[in-house]
């Protein structure tokens, strides 16, 4: 748009007409972009500088919400710790797992689409339903897993009620629901040209060398895509911790999104919630930029780009 504006006068009639036509076609998105993205972003920053509980008018208080978050709210740092723990463990674990499964499915295999479907389905069914069944499975008294353990006279595992086990339990459920990444990885693997493997075989590369020197480099663009989406989604993880543990026990699973939700809709602290939202946005932007920057060093784009 910056580019279009100064050149507007120098445009031919045809260019002008196509510009108007183009803008007309994208106008729904353009209106939505300003109404549901740009304006709320600016408004959210304004709200973050106020005290506002939905009753009365927002009262300007400068950066008090931010300083409260950083310096007076001990819970915030615990939330950051929880969220980093979750993000840094669940993303590599799910993606590593998904990549291994996809590699396995990419070999000559009978029933590939069946196995792929089995891995994918947990990712597409309502999270509320799968949360309910996991809540039941992991229940300390009536859960199937603990029931089995008890039947063999083994000690029960307090998956969701123990502060140290709650986070790994949620990560376990997240890995179970990582089917999207499996499907994307598998598609990426199937796109690696056969000829590269043939060339590698002629050069005497064994299976592992082929995997390391052909498969992985060719898949790096897909890995980058999955990493970015994985990180963004993990930062925002809400449904699992909200439904399985509701932030507990003793705030062990109070992740960023749950904390933000609580501040906004349970404590009605719209100002503080908006400040938290802006900090989240900054964190996501920085993570994405860092990943893109690093990608120059490890992502291989073949001859396409």
């Amino acid at each position: 748009m910056q580019m279009a504006a100064p050149r507007l006068r120098g445009m031919t009639k045809r260019e002008k007409r196509s510009l108007i036509q183009g803008l007309l076609f994208i106008s729904p998105w353009l209106i939505g972009f300003f109404a549901f993205t740009v304006y709320p972003l600016i408004y959210s920053f304004y709200i973050s500088l106020t005290r506002y509980d939905l009753i009365g008018e927002p009262r300007y208080i400068g950066f008090a919400n931010y300083s409260e978050i950083f310096f007076e709210d001990p819970l915030f740092w615990q939330v950051i710790g929880n969220t980093l723990y979750y993000v840094l463990l669940s993303v590599p674990l799910s993606l590593g797992f998904a990549f291994c499964v996809a590699t396995l499915l990419n070999t000559k295999i009978v029933g590939r689409s069946f196995f792929r479907a089995v891995m994918y389905i947990p990712a597409i069914v309502p999270a509320i339903c799968t949360s309910m069944v996991w809540l039941f499975l992991l229940n300390i008294q009536y859960g199937a897993i603990n029931g089995m353990l008890q039947a063999f006279n083994l000690p029960v595992i307090p998956f969701l009620s123990n502060p140290t086990l709650a986070k790994p339990s949620i990560i376990m459920v997240a890995v179970w629901a990582t089917g999207n990444a499996v499907v994307v990885f598998l598609a990426g693997l199937q796109d690696v040209p056969r000829s590269l493997y043939e060339a590698a075989t002629v050069d005497g590369a064994n299976g592992f060398q082929q995997f390391w020197n052909v498969t992985i480099p060719m898949c790096t663009p897909v890995i980058l895509f999955n990493l970015i989406m994985g990180f963004i989604n993990a930062f925002q993880e809400f449904t699992l911790p909200y439904l399985l543990t509701n932030g507990g026990p003793v705030n062990a699973t109070l992740f960023y999104a749950v904390y933000l939700y609580r501040n906004a809709f349970q404590f009605l602290r719209m100002g503080k919630a908006s400040a938290l939202a802006w900090l989240l946005l900054i964190a996501v932007v920085i993570t994405t930029i860092l990943l893109f920057r690093s990608s120059a060093r490890w992502v291989y784009y073949g001859g396409e780009k």
Binding site: T37, S44, I228, L280, L281, V284
Partner: peptide, 14 residues
């Protein structure tokens, strides 16, 4: 890439 939570509060108010 903008997290849903970022516009959640202002949109709710709107």
């Amino acid at each position: 890439m903008i997290p849903w939570q970022v516009t959640m509060v202002p949109l709710f108010i709107i």
